[in-house]
Amino acid sequence: MASRTDPLTQEVVELIGAVVARYYEEYEQAAAKHSLTGAQARVLGLLSHEPMPMRRIAKKLKCEPSNVTGIVDRLEVRGLAERRPDPVDRRVKLAAATEKGQETAARLRGSLDFAREPLAGLTELERAVLRDLLKRMLGIEPG
Rank of each mutant, 00 (worst) to 15 (best):
E117D: 07
A96L: 03
R107A: 15
R90V: 08
V20W: 08
V129W: 05
L133G: 03
L108Y: 02
R84H: 08
L15I: 06
L80G: 01
K93V: 13
A96N: 13
A81Y: 05
L46D: 05
V92A: 13
R22S: 09
R78G: 04
P118A: 07
E11V: 09
A128T: 13
L134E: 15
R116I: 14
M54G: 05
R56H: 14
G45L: 11
D6S: 09
D89I: 10
L119W: 12
V77Y: 04
R56G: 04
L125E: 14
T5K: 08
A115I: 13
N67I: 11
A105Q: 03
E126C: 06
E141C: 04
V72I: 13
E103F: 01
R78S: 10
V13N: 02
H34R: 06
K62P: 02
A128M: 12
L80M: 02
R84Y: 05
I57R: 00
R91E: 15
T104K: 07
T9C: 04
G110H: 10
D113F: 12
L47V: 09
G143P: 00
V19L: 08
G110M: 08
L46Y: 00
Q10R: 07
A120C: 07
L134V: 15
L15G: 08
R74P: 13
V20S: 02
M54Y: 06
T37N: 03
A18H: 05
A30W: 00
R127A: 05
D73P: 01
R78C: 09
A21P: 01
K33G: 08
T104A: 13
Q102W: 12
S3R: 15
L122V: 11
M54E: 03
S3I: 03
K135N: 05
T9E: 12
A32H: 03
A21R: 10
S111H: 08
P85I: 09
L47E: 00
A2C: 14
F114M: 12
A41P: 01
S35F: 11
C63T: 15
T37Y: 00
I57C: 04
A30M: 01
A97Q: 00
L94W: 05
D73L: 02
L8P: 01
Y23L: 03
F114R: 12
K100I: 10
Q29A: 14
V13A: 05
V92D: 09
Y24G: 13
S66P: 00
E64N: 09
V20F: 06
T37R: 04
R78L: 09
E64M: 11
D89R: 07
R136P: 01
T69W: 04
A31K: 03
E99G: 14
L47S: 00
E25H: 06
R55H: 15
Q40H: 11
H34D: 02
L133S: 08
P65I: 04
P7R: 02
R91K: 15
R22F: 05
T123I: 04
A41F: 03
I71Q: 02
G101D: 09
R56A: 05
K100T: 15
